[in-house]
Design a protein around this nucleic acid. Structure first.
Lengths: 184, 184
DNA sequence: CTCCGCACTGTTATAACATAACAGTCTGCC
DNA sequence: GGCAGACTGTTATGTTATAACAGTGCGGAG
């Protein structure tokens, strides 16, 4: 149980560091215009350990550009990235995370760790099928479906279990290394 | 397949008009303090056809009280109602809706109609089981799970189908009438 | 009865998230 | 050149949410 690379059926890489590069390839292939600005935002995602709020991106961007960037610039870029499925919005966090399954449609759930703030995209057709079936049963016709779970990722769950093996403790890490982007 | 009253296993009433009264009973039974302010907010939910934004509640409350109410008042009340499971937050709308399954834990999905703006709470253990299983498979330990679907409710889907019986059918409402509670 | 703590509400200010509207720039094309 | 379109810049503002502290009312301990 030591692998950090989450290997899955689809064979996706899930490597944040190469995220921007992979999107770039995808754009080149599809004739989608990946401008310098958009590329820089992708780089910011690549360098982040967790989901980023729009204003976190804004700050990072301003730092990188050396001059103040305004909100619309960021939101427009996010719109582009969302539209092409390169990032997802995490509604419960008002934050954005790079898509871990570039190329496939997004049929998964988003799992957000309360301790480390990272998010993880878990693909599973069974969940989506169950949702579709349930919706159909009540006459509802879904157009988009969002599944977000909060809890502890494998790593943090193990750390908790180890750290408090005998005692017990308040489920949620306090100031445990919250990566850059996480708020709340 | 003709019933409009969504009758479900649990036998819940789902009647907005009696919502406040039912919460009141629940509070009385459990020794939970339902103050006049909280009761008024419940009444506002009872009188609404769809989910309400915090600031919509704020306006309704201000109107009802005859004087301006400040945001913290509303948010504190919502905190109380959320905490006790009397209302749910719809993250994808930043809005709040009365719980349709008072008394049970919330093990369902929220279906929001793009056309009429109403939300509907669909209970289904199968979905939650599938999610739990999927999460477990990847080592994630969920604490809270949120499922939100957007699309067309039975009623609006039927209306659409009727309106455009012979021609196009993409299943997705365009700019169809949006009512009271819905924003954006 | 007084004092104290607690739960609730009021009030002011501000933070955090998001968009509208319009202006400027750059590029490719006729 | 001149135009159209896509992209970005800029200013202003709208919307959602919280921090911090003050007041009020009530019940219990002393």
């Amino acid at each position: 149980m030591l692998e950090t690379k989450t290997e899955r059926v689809c064979g996706c890489a899930h490597d944040p560091a190469t995220f921007a590069a992979r999107v770039e390839q995808s754009c080149a292939r599809d004739g989608v215009q990946l401008t310098p600005l958009r590329r820089r935002v992708l780089d910011i995602f690549s360098g982040s350990a967790g989901p980023l709020g729009a204003y976190a991106i804004l700050e990072a961007l301003s730092r990188r550009e050396g001059k103040q960037v305004a909100p619309p610039t960021v939101y427009r870029t996010l719109d582009f990235l969302l539209e092409h499925g390169f990032v997802h919005k995490i509604e419960s966090l008002n934050a954005y995370a790079p898509c871990e399954h570039l190329g496939h449609a997004h049929h998964g759930m988003l799992a957000v760790c309360d301790a480390c703030g990272r998010s993880e995209e878990i693909e599973d057709e069974a969940v989506m099928r169950a949702i579709a079936a349930t919706a159909a049963g009540s006459g509802f016709m879904p157009r988009t479906v969002m599944v977000e779970a909060k809890g502890l990722c494998r790593r943090c769950a193990e750390r908790e279990a180890g750290a408090t093996a005998h005692h017990r403790n308040p489920g949620v890490a306090s100031s445990t290394s919250a990566p850059s982007g996480s708020r709340k």
